[in-house]
Amino acid sequence: MSISKEEVEKVASLARLELSPAEVELMAEQMGTVLGYVAKLDEIDATNIKPTTHVLDIDNSFREDVMHPSLTQAEALANGPDQNGEAFVVPKII
């Protein structure tokens, strides 16, 4: 299983990662190995197996619509890289 350098660059840009040419090379090789490993599943005949999206065999796990107190403003903002006391501050994006 091989993955092209272009594919690596596209995924990197979607993930906002900056890779050097050497890293792109390395990632293409490593991701190819990972994908190759997963591709082993193709060897299994899965015709009669239901598609699965969750490892647990349970469904309908709900909460009732009940409100609980939230964090305080200070607690909510505590981990932000920049804040002004009431909001997270980020570079302007429109």
């Binding site: 909510a76 909001a87 997270f88 501050v89 980020v90 302007k92 994006i93 429109i94």
Partner: peptide
């Protein structure tokens, strides 16, 4: 998001 008029900053309310 609230955008600042003067500074290149935006404020995030979650």
């Amino acid at each position: 998001l609230v955008h600042d008029d003067r500074e290149p900053k935006s404020y995030v309310d979650l």
